[in-house]
């Protein structure tokens, strides 16, 4: 039941994250895989630069996962791995994997974790365009 949480500057091993949540008690494994898109609001994106305040990010990620266990007591296993550093188009930026007895809770818990991660986990994204870079969501 100890969640597998990591921030890494290495390419994410999606299969390893899926394997980390495997358990005989689960009939459903649900994974969200976030990847680097080639545009943002119609503006072509060349690559992304992620920065992380690792120690706080892991603390906050722990809170998010604890909240998910409280909301879905049947939740079995959770893995969250987020990449940092420079990512090219198509690279995997984040994987959230959950295992539950039945599928409905697996979709709900997985969505809760990725949505809440985006609100509270201390990771920042700088998009690189042909003519410069910009911190995502920094300004209103």
């Amino acid at each position: 039941m100890t969640p597998y949480l990591a921030i890494t500057d290495q390419p994410i091993d999606v299969a390893a994250a899926m394997a980390a949540v495997q358990t005989d008690a689960a009939g459903a494994v649900n994974a969200f895989i976030g990847t680097v898109r080639n545009q943002s609001g119609g503006r072509p994106v060349r690559r992304l630069h992620y920065e992380s305040y690792d120690s706080m990010a892991l603390t906050q990620l722990g809170h998010v996962v604890t909240q998910a266990y409280e909301k879905w007591p049947m939740l079995q296993e959770v893995a969250v791995v987020h990449r940092k550093g420079t990512l090219e188009l198509g690279d995997v930026a984040v994987v959230v994997a959950v295992a539950t007895p039945h599928r409905a809770e697996s979709f709900a818990a997985c969505q809760y974790i990725i949505d809440t991660l985006k609100q509270v986990v201390t990771i920042w994204k700088r998009e690189e365009y042909e003519d410069g870079t910009e911190w995502v969501a920094a300004h209103p």
């Binding site: 987020h82 990725i114 990771i123």
Partner: peptide
């Protein structure tokens, strides 16, 4: 503002030993 890895309210006191950070809008995922 984060104090010791937690988001802090405006009235929270600060100490020399605290790990303090400014947290602009996060954008993980």
């Amino acid at each position: 503002v984060a104090v010791n890895h937690e988001y802090a309210d405006n009235d929270q006191p600060l100490h020399t030993v605290d790990e303090i950070a400014l947290i602009p809008p996060v954008a993980g995922g």
